[in-house]
Simulated scan of single mutants.
Amino acid sequence: MSGRLLVVGLATSLDRYAWLPTFTAGTINRPTEVLARAGGKGLNAARAAAGLGVEVRSIALIGGETGRTVKALGHPSDVRFLDSGAETRQCLCLLDAAGVLTEIYEPVRPVPPEVWPSVRSAVADELAAADLLALSGRVPPGLGDHVLAELVDLAHAAGVPVIVDSDGPALAAAVRRGPTVVKVNEAEAAAVTGGGPAGLRALGARSVVVTGGATGARYLGQDGRELVVTHDAIDGAIPVGSGDAFLAGFAAQWLLDPADHGTALRVAAAAARANARHLPAGDITGETVRSELPAVRVS
């Protein structure tokens, strides 16, 4: 794999997965298997990219006892952990034998604004060795809506392409700085512009991908080119982390050929499909992604 991917995730979590014969609210439920992972969108995307053979460097904010647990768990990418000054959240995914998924996610805790200069400095340092920057996940309360926009500016100054996958006011501010690609889902796009790819392009993004889960994705390029991604249905699909896998697949192919967004979209959708086959999130490989390519169409 050619090139190095830098993934920045500001809303890290300790992800816990439990597999149960059945799950019934209001009773005692006993899982047959449990697993703890360093997670959140940034580390999930980095894990998926590493599984595809990409050289990945990650920056992740962690704090408190939970943050120390996240760090001790390890990660397949090379992670630079920074102290958030706030307890890292925990997220729980319960999957029963019938394929019913229950998710319980703690809110992202506020991070003191004085943490931001150290994050900004770390990203500036790491950009010197990066070929592509991915800003993945939401911004914790307290840091301000400007922070992703500042990181887009840093990437531009370093001559490094940047992909933004976030939401809310921080996403809107980052889009106005003209990131190379904005990759969001339909709800995230609608919350910023009330519409799809065209609204984000008008706001400042050079190229836009809006994903729709089972319905595929829509792309609008800097040159006005429009592409539609469709794929076959997956029975019992598990969506946790599939958007992060989509980002990883797109980035992996981008590093091979930055000019071919059509192929990048096809690989991205295949990566999302591979991720949706099972838990935990982000466990994909080049082989599992290649096996999904025949089910994906870009037109």
Rank of each mutant, 00 (worst) to 15 (best):
A187R: 13
S291L: 13
V54A: 15
A170C: 13
D78V: 12
E65G: 11
V139N: 09
A50R: 12
V115A: 13
G63N: 00
V8G: 05
P141V: 01
D145M: 05
R176Q: 14
G224L: 12
A157K: 02
T22P: 04
L279S: 07
S58F: 08
T211G: 11
D260C: 01
G216Y: 13
A237P: 09
D96V: 09
A187E: 15
F23K: 00
A172H: 00
P107V: 01
W116V: 15
I62N: 00
D165K: 03
A245L: 11
L279E: 05
A274P: 00
L279R: 00
G168N: 10
L133P: 05
I28M: 12
Y219V: 11
D283Q: 14
V160Y: 02
A271E: 04
L73D: 07
P31N: 12
A271D: 03
H156V: 00
V175Q: 05
A271I: 00
H261W: 04
G195S: 14
W19Q: 11
R290A: 15
A72R: 09
A264N: 02
L227I: 08
I284G: 04
S58V: 03
V8T: 05
T22G: 12
G213H: 05
P141Y: 09
G63H: 06
S207E: 11
S13G: 14
L265P: 03
A259R: 12
G178M: 01
L255S: 00
L256C: 07
D244H: 09
R57I: 11
G204I: 00
L143C: 06
G85S: 02
V162S: 05
H231G: 02
T211L: 12
A128R: 14
D131A: 02
A270H: 03
G199D: 03
E292D: 03
G53Y: 10
H278R: 09
A25W: 13
V208D: 09
C91R: 02
E188R: 07
T193A: 10
P179K: 04
L20F: 13
E33C: 13
A50N: 09
G39K: 11
V208G: 00
A252L: 02
T32N: 14
A98D: 12
V267P: 12
A270I: 06
A72H: 08
R120P: 07
V70T: 07
T193F: 04
V79P: 04
G53K: 08
L133A: 03
S121Q: 14
C91H: 11
L255Q: 00
D96Q: 06
V152F: 07
L279Y: 06
T102N: 10
A270V: 03
N44K: 11
E186Y: 06
V100F: 15
A25E: 13
T27E: 15
L200K: 01
E226I: 08
A18Y: 08
E126N: 05
D244K: 04
R68V: 04
G74I: 01
V160D: 01
E188K: 07
A130H: 00
A157R: 11
E126R: 07
R206Y: 11
L6H: 06
